[in-house]
Nucleic acid binder design. Structure first.
Lengths: 195, 195
DNA sequence: TTAAAAACATACTAATTAGTATGTTTTCTA
DNA sequence: TAGAAAACATACTAATTAGTATGTTTTTAA
């Protein structure tokens, strides 16, 4: 990776926590250059404006880590209940980047930016649709393996589960991490009804 | 209601749609005085700053309408499944104020403001805890009436259902209103497993 | 009816914002 | 190794922001 690419990625990686904690619009370019230790000239050499940088954060930082945490655990599945639950438990309880106070960066950006900016809406839609597709595939594999009911509507179940995730990331901001535990217990009950 | 009270309520009612569509921080005082047709002097006579006004919107506009839409339908319940589903369907599908593109004002404010401002976090927590309590009471009444299983954890189920609501309000911003329909179908399935 | 207080109006300020103009330094390539 | 291009640095600008100072008008109560 060239030095310039390093600078670029460093900006994106250091800007993400700011956007995560303060929101995208409330994070100023001056905030970003202060914490990245990059001058304004350098930043605007790499990104033509703030939105280009914001979109790059989603595409090149959030997207890959989401693939790892949320999508990969669902591939080549035998027992959807198990894989979905474990993926959910891990991302909610075990990831050190996340803080229940600040929720999930992707959920936050959907909430804040999707209604205001089509480019943000598009890239975030792509992100979630890939997660949803992985979950649908996972459930369909379970149907074939007879670990979930053959007559369940995988799309519908996936939407329901993804809603739960987005929602507990939201509620967790006011109810704290203990609400994650409660949510996970009932998610387990729900998943058990799918077979 | 005195003329001053009228002005005050008029500001709050007209400011809510702005906050709903653009976000709280992105809605400027100048935006508000432009659409309310109230001068800055009048606005700052009624509210000592922007946050006081924001909190007043929650307390005096959002809170009452939330009581009507979300809490009241759950009181004096016999069959929680029915009441919960109908309340959810009505608020998601039939309310003209809401637009799937913009989600739910309360959910939006939790997302944006709870991590940044304790006063907002407190009043929004109160709001949601009342909704949650109504749902818990509703489920417990169902236990007594033998319409839901006696051994289910009402708190846990309430958290799970409320997560679903917050989450579909979030996902709906990118997936559109059709996702509400999918969500509701699976919510019905889930509710049926509670008896 | 009058005076005091409440309600509202206008013009301003200081801070912050995204973005640019115009440089200098570093890196790469012929 | 020279020169061109890439990468970075600094100082500025115009717009927008929440909030205030200082008024005028309207309402209320004696």
């Amino acid at each position: 990776m060239s030095k310039a690419d390093n600078t670029r990625m460093s900006i994106l990686k250091k800007a993400l926590p700011l956007v995560y904690k303060n929101g995208y619009q409330a994070t100023s370019i001056d905030d970003i250059i202060a914490t990245t230790q990059v001058t304004k000239g350098a930043l605007y050499y790499h990104f033509k404006n703030k939105d280009e940088m914001g979109l790059a954060i989603i595409k090149y930082v959030m997207y890959p880590s989401m693939q790892n945490m949320l999508v990969k655990p669902l591939l080549d599945s035998q027992s959807p209940q198990k894989e979905i639950y474990q993926m959910m438990e891990k991302v909610l309880m075990d990831d050190n980047f996340f803080d229940s106070k600040y929720g999930c960066p992707a959920v936050n950006l959907i909430d804040e930016m999707a209604p205001l900016n089509k480019d943000f809406a598009n890239v975030l839609t792509k992100l979630f649709k890939e997660w949803k597709k992985a979950m649908v595939d996972c459930l369909n594999a379970g149907k074939k393996a007879n670990t979930v009911k053959a007559d369940l509507n995988s799309e519908q179940v996936a939407i329901f589960i993804l809603s739960g995730y987005s929602g507990i990331r939201n509620l967790g901001k006011i109810l704290g991490k203990s609400s994650y535990t409660e949510y996970l217990k009932e998610l387990k009950n729900y998943l058990m009804t799918l077979n």
